[in-house]
Design a protein around this nucleic acid. Sequence first.
RNA 1: GAUUCCGUAGCUCAGCUGGUAGAGCAAUACACUUUUAAUGUAUGGGCCCUGGGUUCGAAUCCCAGCGGGAUCACCA
Length: 565
Amino acid sequence: MSQELSEQELLRRQSLQKLRELGVDPYPAEAFNVTHLAADLKDNFEEGCAVKMAGRMMSQRIMGKASFAEIQDSSGRIQVYFNRDEICPNEDKTLYNEVFKKLLDLGDFIGIEGVVFKTQVGEISVNVKNFHLLSKALRPLPLPKTDANGVVHDAFTDPELRYRQRYVDLVVNPTVKNTFIKRSKTFSAMRRFFETQGFLEVETPILQAIPGGAAAKPFVTHHNALDIPLYLRIANELYLKRLIVGGFDGVFEFAKDFRNEGMDRTHNPEFTVMELYVAYKDYHWMMDFTEKLMENIAVAVNGSAECLVGEHKISFKAPFRRISMRDAILHYTGIDIQGKDEVSLREECAKIGIETNPTMGVGKLIDEIFGEKCEGHFIQPTFITDYPIEMSPLCKQHRENPNLTERFELMINGKEIANAYSELNDPIDQKERFEAQLKLSERGDDEAMFIDHDFLRALEYGMPPTSGIGIGMDRLAMLLTNNASIQEVLFFPQMRPEAKSTLVLSDLENQILSFCSTEPTLLSELRMKVDCSNKQWDVSLKNLTKHQVLSIQKVNDSVFVTKNN
RNA sequence: GAUUCCGUAGCUCAGCUGGUAGAGCAAUACACUUUUAAUGUAUGGGCCCUGGGUUCGAAUCCCAGCGGGAUCACCA
């Protein structure tokens, strides 16, 4: 069932009909070959230049026989000038008077042919010689306007509407479009950087029988032919490492991962991670590489290594500060985690007001302290290195301290942006670490992993020393576009389903209807037959008359109800 | 999951201690040949989120629900 149309939607449908009657196809099939974009004309003004342009008509200022309109194409807006006698040189002025002035609506796609000129006020414009309707819009767009002082009025700002109808958001809010252009540039700059290193872009399974490579709750689905559960991947790490086993020296993948966890301004159920694995490297090499990568991307996206994020100016200029997790915690809390066991860490947590629970092991406790007391301090890009072994089951033991791992996270603006290791390639050690994780999960830590025996088998064939990194692409896009919520950098963030509007008659409405006939019935008599509150009565009756199921007439002082056919 | 705020015209928003719905833009009609938030005159447009309750009477007060925002928790 379609919704009832608003007045404006009805009017646009009527215009559509009238256009057809005038022989104008509102949805023509032919290509319209554009020669210039709006931005081209503004960048290179050339008086008298003949142009063909197309886009949405976003404003119309009609002044009798002359009019101005604005066309918005992918590059921006350009003013166009319509003169009745130029468009209609003959007696028949229908094209201007009817088609342009009355039957075109804001939001319609039109194509124009004309020549470039400057108006008396000095605005670069196109003098239209001929125009074509390319596609009619049946719904009105929200129309924010910018006044002479640059203040935007009636901006389309409601986040719910903007996310649910991103297409409208993009049409109407130029900064939103710019965010997504920057997001795309972030990806392409990264890809280019990797390709110049000779790394290979690959694709690995999204449907996995064992969701490995991270500790997170997966989405479950079912394969009918195999009759087995399959999981949407939570990470692609274990597959990329198999490819290093197979003999590639550098592989990367921009991967959509899926985690069945909470949603908020930094978490969407599906998100994008770039993972890269390079053979014969360690995490020191990866740090050097990462800071160069970040600087390169920042420049490619924003034209500068400096970038404003909230109230902070962040510099992506390499090199970045490096500090071990032990020193970071020591610095911000005075606690030395070196050599501390679970019991004494729990005591330290209690002292500084961090809640703990019995399922937390040493790794989790240290992570709590860091997350709670340190993380937020690292505004400028900083590598936090050497994580405790309990929290890094896929990472190689530290070459100097067996309680640590060769791992770093890149923190920017107080948030984790990247996570990297010297990858664990000792298959026996790996197996033991998986088993230790499994034990943790038996304590109730619901993020623990499954054991991927095929991955262990692959390691047994031998994996060269490898360094790997995962970069949260959404988080990175948030930084580079100065957005505080992930929804702003995803075209279509996950939303609760829209409530359906049901136009089905209620029981009460049906009951009322059953007492009515095509003969007029006295309203007061009808009221007595129906047992309901005054409010229910009022709403139901209004509904029925609104949908023209019933009609009400007043004759003298009596009110009658009649059923419509 | 917790707390809190919000939901009124196509858009942005007013609407007082309850009294039968308001503005600007958009729309419609007319005027106007270089305007630019064009202008002037006139007109139409509302399931006031949904359901229940209190009341003679609810957009307004109460309860529940739905949707959204913010903050917090969770998220190696």
